[in-house]
Design a protein around this nucleic acid. Structure first.
Lengths: 154, 154
DNA sequence: TATTGTTATACTCTATAACTATA
DNA sequence: TATAGTTATAGAGTATAACAATA
């Protein structure tokens, strides 16, 4: 039998005290989601933030940058970079608005629609991979619970 | 009736295309959790990261910094800062190990135990607040689902 | 040679504040 | 005066790489 040491480091390290919190488990899962999303979108030439912006512009043609900022819950200064990136890749266009020359009307280009379709498929595959341990019913339950919490804490 | 504009910005902006993804809803919820956790722990003199480190050290007496890094899934260089912070606040002690003078055996102090007890209560209240829209059964379901995903994607 | 803790550095994401041009 | 977009800057969090002491 091995001789005991003075201050032996634990052979196995546990984190049960943190696992009791839903938030800790959410953080662990979210970190994996984020890392995998970054890798998933890289071949499509998108970052997570530009993917999200593209989705909102596609759904809301002629949206302004300020509205986009509100939808994504980020500051206006942050969307400038996102819109620059998408415009430089010819995925969206900044169109001038008649009647108010301060703002732009954002529109997804044809190239942008194609990029979105491809990215959307990649992200669906990503979620199938990450939530593979859950049955379709469980995935739907998780999805609904998360959405309800977000809606309730506005 | 108001005259139509050339390129009118949408009156209401939606994000249904993103809401279809569980990951997007998780991000929205997680951002709120993180922000509220930061505020919750501030009066206890802790950051989210030091709170987590304190929990793991309390649960695994004489753990080394490298083991702590593995448990928290961060780099060793990152735990140096966390351990410094906790040690400077007298919440933990870096004890020398007989037999290996390279590593420390980390231990929570009495003050650290008291700080943990207080912080734990604060975080329980924080979760009750944030997940108030869910019934106890739903909260438990969410908790279990998140934990299963994390366990399955190791 | 390998490992522990450490330091310096850099990178990502996001927020704050000040500026411009328009309204 | 107020608003849309912009720029510069800073902060938080984390990772990478190189180093000294020790094994």
């Amino acid at each position: 039998m091995p001789e005991p040491k003075a201050a032996p480091a634990p052979a196995e390290v546990t984190d049960e005290r943190l696992r009791q919190f839903a938030g800790y488990n959410m953080k662990r899962v979210y970190m994996k989601v984020r890392a995998d999303m970054t890798e998933t979108l890289a071949p499509a030439g998108l970052r997570v933030a530009t993917f999200s912006a593209l989705a909102v512009i596609l759904e809301n043609p002629d949206i302004t940058q300020t509205q986009l900022a509100q939808a994504l819950k980020v500051e206006r200064s942050g969307v400038v970079v996102l819109v620059d990136e998408l415009e430089n890749a010819d995925l969206i266009a900044r169109n001038r608005v008649k009647g108010d020359r301060r703002s732009y009307a954002l529109r997804v280009t044809l190239k942008g629609r194609r990029a979105w379709a491809r990215a959307e498929a990649l992200v669906h595959a990503h979620e199938a991979r990450l939530f593979a341990a859950l049955s379709p019913e469980e995935r739907e339950r998780l999805h609904a619970l998360l959405r309800r919490i977000d809606g309730a804490t506005d």
